[in-house]
Design a binder for these strands. Structure first.
Length: 279
DNA sequence: ACGAGCTCCTGCTTGC
DNA sequence: TGCAAGCAGGAGCTCG
């Protein structure tokens, strides 16, 4: 499940392999990943052919590959999207959806099982695509303002984990790193946002930064085949997880058993001892 | 404007 | 063995 650390790992991989490369051919094998492009798969393919990639950029979980002409190829990996670098002779992975032939006779392949994400061409989007402009800064952005985000969150009538997952308030956080940062900051996922102090918010953002920086260093979290780097290698942050996916196992801080709760039709993992609703 | 819930997708796992 | 239901969840959408 690609969240900020996984998307950043992929961005770095793309930076290494596609920067300065020109696209010589594009094949769209499934229309769904390019559904956001109103001009259709054929036009999408034709339009990209002949363009040169500049250094890939990212905000939150959105990734874009600027073209030398000022437009950009915007990508969201959704649940299961992958970019892979292959040689043209390599066998196609299952669920390969789009193939970009590059001028060094390698291929950039977009592989996606569930197809929640997708690709589109953003006119003039090299700097910041307009399709990404509604997404808030992530904790690593230079314009991320912790005090302002804390104030915004505290003013809302919702609970903390819902806000952490809202990409228009703070971006890049998904279920894994929400649970990990809440555990680290000793906050229960369902705490009302208005009852959390500014210093607790600032500590939470610091936890997010720490845990996501460590995850980037480890190349992300690979639970299954759905997330791998552009060269096909898995990330190894799973072994460093403190609570996500660890129900029934001892809390690494106090030894209490980690619990799993239903939350927003998904799961929340937390330590019932360290993370209490009223504290 | 805000917040909550629904929906899109595939494939692995679980239960009858 | 086979089939159906459950589960994974990012984010755009709708509705109150």
């Amino acid at each position: 499940m690609p969240e900020l650390p996984e998307v950043e790992t992929i961005r770095r991989g793309l930076e290494k392999f596609v920067t300065g490369r020109t696209v010589t051919k594009v094949q769209v094998l499934h229309p769904r990943p390019v559904r956001w492009d109103e001009s259709g798969p054929e036009h999408f393919a034709r339009s990209i052919t002949g363009r040169e990639f500049k250094t890939p950029a990212r905000r939150g979980k959105y990734l874009w590959l600027p073209f030398a002409d000022g437009d950009a190829l915007v990508a969201h990996l959704g649940m299961s999207g992958q970019f892979r670098i292959n040689s043209a002779e390599d066998e196609l992975a299952r669920n390969t959806r789009v193939i970009f032939d590059l001028d060094d006779s390698t291929q950039l392949r977009f592989v996606d099982q569930r197809m929640f994400g997708g690709l589109l061409i953003s006119e003039g989007g090299a700097q910041l695509p307009k399709e990404v402009s509604h997404i808030a800064a992530d904790v690593f952005d230079t314009d991320f303002n912790p005090a302002a985000v804390a104030e915004d969150m505290a003013s809302r009538r919702s609970t903390i984990k819902r806000l952490l997952l809202n990409q228009q308030i703070i971006s890049g956080v998904g279920n894994i790193y929400a649970d990990e940062s809440l555990w680290s900051a000793k906050l229960h996922y369902d705490r009302p946002a208005g009852q959390i102090s500014e210093s607790e918010y600032l500590a939470l953002f610091q936890s997010l930064k720490t845990v996501m920086a460590a995850a980037i260093k480890a190349g992300g979290t690979s639970f299954d085949e759905l997330y791998v780097n552009v060269d096909g290698s898995a990330g190894y942050f799973e072994r460093e997880l403190s609570c996500y996916g660890r129900q029934g196992k001892p809390c690494k801080r106090c030894g209490e058993k980690i619990e799993r709760a239903k939350f927003m039709n998904r799961s929340s993992y937390f330590c019932p001892q360290c993370q209490q609703l009223d504290s």
